[in-house]
């Protein structure tokens, strides 16, 4: 088992009561793997506690990226929400913890080394 964060990075935010989570694979191989594994259904399940009214997966293949839009998950949005994370700031961090089956060619999906 690996975690999504091993092969992708991400960022999340709000638009009214909706949240979006950008997920970007570090490599082309990782993107191909996520195209199969990181389905709309799986993301909706992962956030079932937030009861999204809809989850959409948009594709940005040239950037090895997906944009997930989760509708009506922020408790009314920035001002109305009574929750601590009123703006979906931690949703990317939460999604990157998702477990995934270990891919056959994991080495080809890992991020490039950080610059020194």
């Amino acid at each position: 088992m690996i975690h999504l964060k091993d092969i992708a990075h991400g960022r999340s935010g709000d638009k009214g009561d909706h949240a979006n989570i950008g997920v970007i694979a570090y490599t082309r191989a990782g993107h191909a793997f996520l195209a199969r594994e990181l389905t709309r259904e799986k993301v909706a399940d992962w956030f079932h506690a937030l009861a999204p009214s809809a989850v959409v997966r948009y594709e940005l293949p040239l950037l090895f990226a997906f944009n997930f839009v989760l509708r009506d998950v922020l408790g009314g949005g920035a001002s109305d929400s009574l929750r601590t994370d009123t703006q979906g700031k931690v949703l990317a961090t939460a999604l990157l913890e998702m477990p995934l089956p270990t891919p056959e060619y994991l080495a080809a999906m890992l991020p490039p080394a950080e610059r020194g």
């Binding site: 709000d14 638009k15 979006n20 948009y58």
Partner: peptide
């Protein structure tokens, strides 16, 4: 740092349909 990771992350920030 400005690199592929920092720029692609921000490109996807608070967007809906990227098209």
């Amino acid at each position: 740092v400005v690199d592929r990771e920092s720029v692609s992350g921000q490109l996807l920030y608070e967007i809906g349909d990227p098209a």
